[in-house]
Design a protein around this nucleic acid. Structure first.
Lengths: 206, 206
DNA sequence: AAGTAGAGACCGACCGGTCGGTCTCACCCA
DNA sequence: TGGGTGAGACCGACCGGTCGGTCTCTACTT
């Protein structure tokens, strides 16, 4: 891993722990075993570093949360897998984001201080929300979901639940609270499901 | 309002907007029209100010969210009112917390930097979670709630949804997104309710 | 020898906190 | 009633230290 990647990696870790504004350049350099010259040789400013870190964070998020999702047919199982991946493969990834979901940390920190950055993160939230709704609409169209279900309301609920779980996970890193939150969300989705098909149970089990 | 109260008030506003560590003493003094001497005459340190501000924030939260709750008999209506109060009376209170829920802002900011403060806030979260569960247990006991409902899971879901709604509200201050989130949570709770009683509808309508 | 990555001394602005001092006003004695 | 006194609210210059960022110089590659 070259210095540029090392700096991005350590910055992502620190941003997830302490946020953007509270992470100092010296702090990053100490963890990356580098110096001012080394950093400013690759990035023109701390803001430019932020952009690179956010891009890397998104790449990791996609790999962890969406990876393998296209091999699943049933849209309800897709959403459930999304929830599980988010908790087990993404949130608990202490190597990359030891401080929990970096998007939550950064959006809460920056929403009233750096609206440009916050909007960038918020856009990602809304794209993800739309993706969940799309899966639910598919499920409804194929009769997998209760026809009375309001997919807009349900997707919003699931997403808000994921954000809330992330906040709680930040405080109580035990993982137990997180698992219970995700289990509650999955149970909620189950309650809206009709006609469970065999591959559903097959995918669900450990 | 004397200087001490003024400083606490302005600090709460700024903490909700920028967090604790990113709010400077000078920033507070500018908004409170005071000076270093004025502040340090009332507080020994910034940390001591934090404790006072957190205490005031809790007072406001209780007044806005719990106020009038004891005049409601039906525990399901109590929980619904809790949700509505949280959104309409607490979260939208731009005079005291223009940056959204100060507990969310501070807990996300401090959970890996000031565990002492973060734990203090987290304890409040868990007390509130327990309160919701208590209401749901009452509702279940009195037959107002579906007997199969897992009150532990439901309360966790509602609470995580509230936290998630707070995060989203921070990004999209429109109020519309917030209203829809709360409506989704209320609808979820409705789905678990049986035997709607007359006073339920009476309390629910505008 | 030329070009580049990296090291680290250094800059001005700002951080939380201190401290000498001013001002107001209740209280006291004449 | 009027002048003196002292407590405490408040002011703002100042402290050592840290912030993001710049710049010069070294050392390695080709």
């Amino acid at each position: 891993m070259d210095l540029r990647d090392k700096i991005i990696h350590e910055s992502l870790r620190l941003f997830s722990l302490k946020g953007y504004l509270n992470t100092s350049i010296d702090d990053i350099l100490e963890h990356a075993n580098s110096s001012k010259g080394g950093l400013y040789n690759h990035f023109r400013s701390k803001d430019e570093l932020f952009v690179a870190v956010l891009s890397e964070a998104r790449k990791i998020w996609r790999r962890k949360v969406l990876g393998g999702l296209d091999r699943i047919d049933d849209p309800v199982v897709k959403v459930k897998t999304l929830l599980e991946n988010y908790a087990d493969r993404y949130l608990k990834d202490a190597e990359n984001i030891p401080g929990g979901c970096v998007f939550v940390t950064l959006s809460v920190e920056l929403d009233d201080q750096r609206q440009d950055f916050a909007r960038e993160i918020g856009d990602g939230f809304y794209r993800f929300l739309a993706m969940i709704k799309r899966f639910l609409d598919e499920a409804k169209a194929s009769g997998r979901l209760n026809q009375e279900a309001d997919t807009d309301a349900v997707s919003r609920m699931l997403f808000a639940g994921m954000l809330g779980a992330s906040v709680l996970y930040g405080i109580d890193k035990s993982g137990d609270t997180l698992d219970k939150c995700i289990a509650s969300l999955t149970a909620y989705l189950d309650g809206l499901t009709v006609l469970p098909r065999p591959q559903d149970d097959a995918t669900k089990k450990k």
